[in-house]
């Protein structure tokens, strides 16, 4: 008998739990990044970034987050490969059906997001952790000037375009992922599901809107 970690339903549960955890993280991430455009003083963002980079609880959370990303990717890959194997010969004519549009492109939007994530990590995360960034000393404490780093990056047009495009694709991924997770948890009925579907759209619009607003406002400021 298969276990909760190896059965088809179990694997989906693991993937969706990890995915939902990432949904929560995206909100926190957006909230912090909005500080760059809300406050003119770059030190507000730098102080929060400093706290995030040095607090022990946040550091533990960081490991959990990396685990969540890995878990989501590994389970998604296993499921996707099994799904490809389950249909060895494809139909010659594309299947027309009244299905959720974005659900058909989850693996494609996932690959785009993964490429974006690698570039994003190289640009900000690894640079802040291990690379060279400008530093500031305020009240005897050394801060990485990440706010200026962000502003410098988003003054470059190709960078702005790439970030916006990546977030739009991520938004497509989130619309289906958000509402699909609830079905995987077994929560689906005629009253509950329309609310969840509406929430999925609101959530995705907030994430995409917020994250595209940051580069746009910096570029045009």
């Amino acid at each position: 008998m298969s276990t909760i970690f190896t059965s088809s339903i179990g694997k989906k549960l693991m993937m969706s739990l990890a995915g939902f955890f990432l949904l929560a993280f995206l909100l926190v991430h957006l909230g912090i990044n909005l500080l760059v455009i809300i406050y003119d003083d770059p030190m507000v963002y730098n102080k929060v970034a400093h706290f995030m980079g040095t607090n022990i609880l946040v550091k533990i959370f960081e490991i959990v987050l990396m685990g969540g990303i890995l878990l989501h990717i590994i389970y998604a890959l296993i499921l996707q490969i099994q799904n490809w194997i389950a249909r060895p010969k494809r139909y010659s004519k594309a299947n027309y059906s009244n299905t959720s549009f974005f659900s058909k492109f989850m693996i494609h939007t996932a690959i785009i997001t993964l490429v974006f994530l690698a570039i994003h990590f190289a640009d900000f995360y690894f640079k802040a952790k291990f690379g060279h960034t400008e530093t500031l000393v305020v009240d005897g404490v050394l801060y990485h000037d990440l706010a200026t780093e962000i502003v410098d990056k988003f003054k470059m047009l190709p960078f702005v375009v790439f970030y916006i495009a990546a977030f739009i694709f991520l938004g497509f991924h989130l619309v289906h992922g958000f509402q699909s997770a609830f079905k995987t948890y077994g929560l689906d009925n005629s009253r509950f599901t329309p609310v969840i579907q509406a929430l999925a759209i609101v959530y995705s619009v907030v994430i995409v809107g917020g994250n595209t607003m940051i580069p746009l406002m910096i570029y045009f400021s």
């Binding site: 008998m1 298969s2 059965s7 088809s8 339903i9 694997k11 989906k12 499921l79 099994q82 799904n83 194997i85 389950a86 249909r87 299947n95 059906s97 009244n98 299905t99 959720s100 659900s103 058909k104 989850m106 289906h176 509402q179 699909s180 079905k183 995987t184």
Partner: peptide, 19 residues
Amino acid sequence: QMVAKMDELGFGNCTNTGA
């Protein structure tokens, strides 16, 4: 038993597309 058999028979995994 039915879920284990379904996996064993080589059906794919549901992605809640609604097709």
